[in-house]
Design a protein around this nucleic acid. Sequence first.
RNA 1: GGACAGGUGGCCGAGUGGUUAAAGGCAGCAGACUGUAAAUCUGCCCGCGCAAGCGUACGCUAGUUCGAAUCUAGCCCUGUCCA
Length: 409
Amino acid sequence: MSEYKSDLLRLLAERGHIHQLTDAEGLDKLACEGIVVAYNGYDATAPSLHIGNLASVMLLRRLQQAGHKPIALMGGGTTKVGDPSGKDESRKLLTQDAIASNIAGISQVFHRLLDFSDSPTGAVMVNNDEWLSTLGYIDLLRTVGPHFTVNRMLTFDSVKLRLEREQPLTFLEFNYMILQAYDFRELALRHGCRLQLGGSDQWGNIVNGIELTRRMNGIELFGLTTPLLTTADGAKMGKSVNGAVWLNEEMLPSYDFWQYWRNVDDRDVVRFLKLFTDLPLDEIARLEALQGSEINAAKVVLANEVTRLVRGEEAARAAETTAAATFAGGGLGQDLPTFEVGPDGIGIIDALIGLGFAASRGEAKRLIAGGGARLDGTAITDEAYHITLASGEAKLSSGKKKHGILRIA
RNA sequence: GGACAGGUGGCCGAGUGGUUAAAGGCAGCAGACUGUAAAUCUGCCCGCGCAAGCGUACGCUAGUUCGAAUCUAGCCCUGUCCA
């Protein structure tokens, strides 16, 4: 691990970012010689990236920290096709408009985590729709087609898994790897990009790009993948109260974002500190020494640091203050979700639904019946209970972790 | 175009005429224990209703039947093999 000569690979290795490298020695050498231009692509399948993508964004950040140049590629073109990697089913096709607005949402986080200034290592954002959408079918077949054999394409996991499980793989999706390969070559020619980063499920796509460019242009490219992030209990990372842990504020309030990190498994804390924060390693080592319930302190640091990077200093502080007030103080913090109530108060069931703690009246009732609904800390077991809010506001909780404020409008 | 297999609740997967809102598992939610951790144990887990009950639901449509997820016909979709 420490035999790398370049700052880049040493940094990435010690932080736990490296899963596989196509040519460790070659890349190490390249990184020693000068600025490496590297890219990672993001398809516009949702209005925001989520935690599962954060490792790769951090990777671009590290790259820049080590004195190299990151390219954030928006997959405006590839999204129209759909990457079958790691999926059992094809996604439904997105409209042009949806893709455009998704790109607008996704691109936000890069401006927080990367420096887009006009310097030799300034980050660049490009959209592959720029070159993919104008490709002519016959042209593409003739230029790229001869370099791919179907025999080989069938051996890549993205394809093989579908076939083995007898799940449909459409011809549309089958072409994805070709387009991604084409992207890498295009970026190499246009921007001098030499390295593609990606999640471990992108290995096949990356290798294809490297081979295509070598055959067509004789340029040597490199690939690096990050480990697939799973939590210590084996699940894919990134589920929270209401689904995915989104990076954008509009998709997930910062308080909930903070809480996700505050609640990670003990066994994940150190790994996540290395991957998702800029904390120096000796600081992390100090936190790693904590035992038992002291680990909670490390989780707070993790939550603060990640929230600061992704959501900003202010959001991180507000979330921490709120958490301290509601959990340690037993009161209520101002950053909790709030539901406004009329002057007559509100029934407990409607209050639970209003705060999003229950999706239906039935669910709210079950929560109450199970003893999970609390008003200012005391369990409410009567589903007809009416909350009057004499003091103007009250804390309503679902279980011990989900809290919200009811307030007279 | 032909033969065969299949399409069940968020997912996996039983069920082949009523006792089935549909076994079991996973995921999820809550309770106990804890450290806002893990593991474990317990309860809940389509909607509305205080309830009896009602409404929806087993690819789609039309039938048979007192009664269908279960039978029939047509259609749509998927896989395997064949042309």
